[in-house]
Design a protein around this nucleic acid. Structure first.
Lengths: 225, 225
DNA sequence: CCGACTTTGTGCACCGGTTCACAAAGGGAT
DNA sequence: ATCCCTTTGTGAACCGGTGCACAAAGTCGG
């Protein structure tokens, strides 16, 4: 392998960032199966995307491929991991220990690489003190202290909708700038804070829309993964 | 209220469809608070979008606003519901009763409007026969029969990654064309089948990427909801 | 009935992202 | 060393979506 060119473009398109984890997952699978080298075509199929798009995505990280051969799997895993920041350890706090919060805390693949659940917090005195996924459930009153003490930098909101904005405001004030929100509300946050939303109900409604179309007219809307 | 123009454009942009549920949620809140009429500006704020975008979105359903006044809340709720297909009842099956499947089955807001959990299925003899969210857990062997008997048209996959593709193939063969996939795999499906993916691990990785950026350089990536 | 005011609906320019298609680069065989 | 084959990296056209800015349409007070 020759001297790798630096990742030059510091501004990676958002759409590319969203696909890097997909490539990473496919690459991990290949690495485990002992594959040493992969072409953009094969990796694209494994990740469910177009090969030109994959190449353009990877080109944003630098020139890590070899023409006529493809990409070195191990090396690419490392480069993508580094780019995504997975070579460091992220402390995640889950706020809200309902059914969903509990499921998230116990969900293994979630913690897999780079992420560690560092705290679980709830408001209900009934569950505070319980042990979930090996962690003691702490009281919401101590939210700021817990965040500081455990070095939490990413917060997962799994509270009821009514509580989400208030909790959000508090974690932002406590210095958190990355939030994964499962509550069905539009959070308002200051600039510089990233919020990503996962909304089951919205996904279902989008499916229903297309399902209705299929049943109704001869116009067929199609897959989109 | 004057005679409403027909929804003319049968091809609603995907980006618009993805936002309609957001508008609908905001409108429901307003209806409950007794608001009769809302301007595009106010609704846009409530839904967290730009008002011009909101107007353009709504214009795809037809001309339901009144210039100088705004939109009739109740009427708009009805129009959007109808467009999304929420005026009918959708039978949903959840396959996989791990932590996540259980959480989904019990998640109230999920079933709220238009959707009804009609079946819960798993492969583990340990949980088959249990009652979850008032439903008897059925065996995966009976998957096709259950889908047919209960009229299931949307399937939620909450199985381990290794099982997802096989279950997917079976439900597609059984006639299901709308799938919400929580398993961390790229499903391959025939044309005409809609798959939507929810992937916690990917969301976290995207957050980590931006978080790393913030910590690292002076370039700040921002919010995106 | 009129004029001032509000708010919608949309034409248009712009932008990020996708896809095609191909030149450039490298590997391997002879 | 040369030629052929494979595969990358990218220029350029294209496409869907966004946001501005404004004319058209309607309300309401006088």
């Amino acid at each position: 392998m020759k001297s790798p060119s630096q990742p030059r473009d510091r501004g990676i398109p958002e759409a590319t960032v969203a696909r890097l984890p997909l490539y990473l997952r496919a690459l991990h699978g290949m690495a485990e199966r002992g594959v040493a080298t992969v072409s953009s075509e094969d990796l694209a199929v494994a990740a469910g995307v177009n090969s030109a798009k994959l190449r353009k995505d990877l080109s944003h990280l630098g020139s890590y491929g070899t023409r006529g051969v493809g990409y070195d799997v191990e090396y690419l895993v490392y480069q993508i991991s580094r780019e995504l920041g997975l070579t460091q350890d992220w402390a995640v706090a889950i706020v809200g220990v309902g059914n969903l919060g509990r499921a998230l805390a116990n969900y293994g693949g979630f913690v897999s690489r780079g992420f560690r659940i560092a705290a679980v917090v709830d408001a209900d005195p009934e569950v505070v003190g319980d042990t979930i996924a090996g962690l003691n459930v702490e009281h919401i009153d101590d939210l700021e202290a817990v965040i500081k003490r455990r070095g939490v930098s990413i917060v997962v909101l799994a509270t009821p909708a009514a509580a989400a904005q208030e909790v959000c405001d508090r974690v932002v004030t406590a210095g958190v700038t990355s939030i994964l929100n499962f509550a069905p509300v539009v959070l308002s946050v200051p600039d510089g804070v990233d919020v990503r939303k996962v909304d089951l109900s919205i996904e279902l409604q989008i499916l229903a829309f297309h399902e209705q179309r299929k049943a109704g007219g001869p116009l067929m809307a199609v897959d989109s993964q």
